[in-house]
Design a binder for these strands. Structure first.
Lengths: 334, 334
DNA sequence: CTGTTAGCGCGTTCAC
DNA sequence: GTGAACGCGCTAACAG
């Protein structure tokens, strides 16, 4: 079946130890020998058996990846960054999606432990009270949070609060004052909370009163809260959405209510998914370097010592301009 | 560190062999003993070491997943189906994305062999000449193709040719006769070819002359071919796109050229990505059960014997009606 | 620089 | 129904 180290050793006229060294610590073996082993290995299509290697060395060269879903392009983009970085480092991935389900999040830990992952990169609903995160900490498993921002945890993220605050200012500069925010469930998502905080702070800094968030609890949510918001007599002229999928839905809701975007309503998303730029109108969005977030998380995890809170990385965000935002006009205030 | 089978055996007052049996062949051990072992294992948070298990039993309980990219929601949706089915079967996944790059496709095989996957589910650019597929066949590794359709390979797919043909008829029924098709690179994608074949056959069946495909070679393609198509004096009144991402781009191109969709141009996509239904206008698309394709592929792979061509599964497609298609009107022929 | 040796944790005979 | 012993393929010591 699969060729083993013995056959390579025999054909190359060396011991198995030398073959092992040729692969793992190439510098520790004579270049001629190394070359000969490489040739034999190629001829025999030898691939080292990771299970044996892991068993012996106690290094699985595998990391766990726990993400809410891959159906949201944000995480798909991030996953690609993770996969690329892991691959380059010779690490395999054990993926797990929680589907925003706490029970699944809880089950993840056993799954990861069984596969003896060396570390985990993950995004949880709420870093402050995640059962999965608690278990990971308990097991002293190295980890890096992606997207979540928490003082006492190692994280890779953008400064979401500042980002949203800046977008409020941007809209204000365009003449908007009735600015609202739509979010997912604030209770369950720390990111939604931090983004809303940015909105509230931004509004107050401009002397405006922040409105309550239009919450849309589920993934395939009803848009009741948003409908109510837009049905008001003096409805907002600008809407910030805590993620791009919500923004796409808001776009649709506006159309349904015959509200023209951006003439009557400006919309800003959050995430910067690639598809947003392809839409018509193209989505204005606070963009995060999603692949880079994944990549940095892996690099931090594999950097050597266990990542500490002070190793946290804040990457740059940017407001990606699109066609869903316009300066406020008289029409805006219908 | 991690608890081993020995500690469980000791605490339960049995030998490691019995503990092993309690997990792998529960029927072969007395129920009392089994129960006691289960309790101890839970108390000790024992999780069997997969590497050791794999090494000894030569069963990795791991399958390889090779997909072009996860940035296209089609594959993300499919991946979720794969992940779910594998998880339920107790199988882990080794994911690998080729990014439509032949060199990466070639490298995949070593990656998979190292992890000693028991089988592979994969989508290749062209099943007829894929180096990866050749290697997998050579290594006698069980596999199932997803989306690709090929007589001599085990596949899970929809009947793409019939599907597109039906959509041609559908458009014709709405009064369209100048129907065109936009595709990715026909040379490299067997799916694009089969979908185009469906278009051509559909046209001929209606006594119409199929137009050459408007090819857009790269992932982030220029839309030159499409522009040219739509700039013609007697431009098409309906456009079928070989995937939804192309359709989204077509929507944008039309808008740029001030062609109203669907009044002046009807657009039909292919894939049925969830996001399509959320767009404005919502995308009419030939939808495939993407998660189901992934799930079925895994189930077929793990069904027991090595999947054979005659095990191939054709799943049902459906035309998902949206707002990008309208009956032909006098305005259509500008 | 290279070879010898001893397990890593588990599944699997074969006895009992 | 259960236990003892072997070895899967490899890496980590140590010797040379």
């Amino acid at each position: 079946m699969s060729t083993s180290i013995h056959q390579v050793a025999e054909r190359a006229g060396v011991s198995i130890a030398t073959v092992s060294r040729a692969f793992n610590t190439p510098d520790a073996v004579h270049s001629d020998t190394r070359e000969r082993i490489a040739q034999v290995a190629r001829a025999l299509r030898y691939a080292p058996n990771r299970s044996a290697s892991t068993l012996r060395s106690r290094r699985s060269r595998t990391i766990g990846v726990v993400l809410p879903t891959l159906l949201n392009p944000v995480f798909a983009e991030c996953f690609e960054g993770i996969a690329q970085a892991s691959c380059e480092a010779g690490y395999a991935i054990v993926p797990y999606t929680t589907e925003y389900d706490l029970e699944r999040e809880r089950r993840a830990i056993a799954w990861l432990r069984e596969r003896s992952v060396e570390g985990v990169v993950l995004t949880v609903a709420n870093a402050a009270n995640s059962p999965l995160l608690a278990e990971i900490t308990r097991a002293k498993l190295p980890y890096v949070l992606l997207y979540n921002r928490h003082q006492e945890r190692p994280c890779v993220s953008v400064d979401q609060t500042a980002a949203v605050q800046e977008s409020v200012t941007y809209l204000h500069d365009l003449g908007h004052t009735r600015i609202a925010m739509a979010t997912g469930s604030l209770d369950t998502s720390d990111r939604a909370q931090q983004r809303y905080d940015g909105y509230a702070q931004g509004m107050r800094a401009l002397g405006l009163t922040p409105l309550a968030a239009a919450e849309q609890p589920f993934m395939h949510a009803n848009t009741d809260a948003l409908n109510a918001l837009l049905l008001q007599a003096k409805r907002p002229t600008a809407l910030i959405c805590s993620n791009d999928l919500l923004a796409v839905r808001a776009l649709r809701t506006a159309r349904t209510m015959e509200i023209d975007v951006p003439r009557e309503l400006s919309i800003v998303g959050f995430d910067g998914i690639a598809l947003g730029a392809e839409l018509t109108p193209s989505l204005t969005s606070i963009s995060q370097p999603n692949a880079e977030i994944g990549r940095s998380g892996v690099e931090l995890l594999l950097a050597g010592r266990t990542p500490k809170p002070r190793d946290s990385i804040t990457l740059a965000h940017a407001l990606r301009l699109g066609e869903t935002v316009a300066a406020r006009t008289s029409q805006s205030s219908a």
